[in-house]
């Protein structure tokens, strides 16, 4: 994997740990999937290998769909580690509630367009929260963490994806949640046919009625 200096643990999730590191004079993110003691070693390896290969693939495909994502530098299957570009910028989560109304609308419109591009291309992000979106100094929004992503064009998958976005807005930016989400949908609608959008919105309503996902994002 080459020389790695000064790695700092940024986030410890249930499945993987994220480190900020210096790698060949570059600031990088190192995502390492941890071994699970409860799984048989050979099964553990099989699962981690699949995901370590699958996630960079989705990140790469998202680029083809026109969605900015970190560049993948190295995938080391043996240690279940992905080394990728560190996106210099701010988490949308940290600025959305503080910025001006017009800026907020601009960001939400952009987010909606990006989700629309992903879905049009058949990619489901799987964890659309404003903490997984980074705004850089040039005003470009990057999507990160495709660890729960999948390839799908199904209505259900798209609906759940957007519903998670809505929930994330409600829990983190509750004062503007409604305004933000309708702007996200406005951006999203530019990317898919009106028939498609209508069906997806109906699906979101159905998902909400089922009552699940409700409190999942609180505290995120």
């Amino acid at each position: 994997m080459g020389e790695m200096k000064q790695s700092v643990l940024m986030k410890k999730g249930a499945e993987a740990s994220l480190y900020l590191a210096d790698w060949h004079d570059r600031k990088v993110i190192m995502k390492k999937r941890l071994p699970k003691k409860y799984r048989l070693p050979e099964l553990d390896k099989q699962v981690k290998t699949y995901r370590t290969i699958h996630e960079p693939k989705l990140i790469h495909e998202a680029k083809k769909a026109g969605v900015p994502t970190p560049t993948i530098f190295l995938v080391d299957v043996e240690s279940a580690t992905i080394i990728m570009e560190y996106i210099e910028g701010k988490q949308v989560k940290k600025l959305l509630s503080k910025t001006s109304r017009s800026e907020r609308q601009h960001i939400c419109l952009e987010i909606g367009e990006l989700i629309g591009k992903l879905h049009r291309y058949g990619i489901i992000h799987g964890d659309l929260t404003t903490s997984n979106m980074i705004l850089n100094s040039e005003g470009k929004i990057f999507f990160v963490d495709f660890g729960l992503g999948e390839k799908s064009k199904e209505l259900e998958a798209r609906g759940v994806d957007l519903h998670l976005m809505k929930r994330a807005l409600q829990s983190t930016h509750f004062r503007f949640a409604e305004e933000c989400f309708s702007t996200v949908i406005e951006g999203y609608s530019k990317m898919l046919s009106s028939e498609n959008v209508k069906n997806i919105l109906g699906k979101i309503k159905e998902i909400e009625k089922r009552g699940r996902y409700i409190a999942e994002r609180e505290g995120d």
Binding site: G13, A14, K36, Y38, R39, L40, L43, V47
Partner: peptide, 18 residues
């Protein structure tokens, strides 16, 4: 057994962490 039990354990772990 190993496969299905690992799957439910993983999901339970995610819920616990969350």
């Amino acid at each position: 057994q190993e496969t299905v039990f690992s799957m439910v354990t993983e999901v339970t772990e995610r819920a616990l962490a969350h």
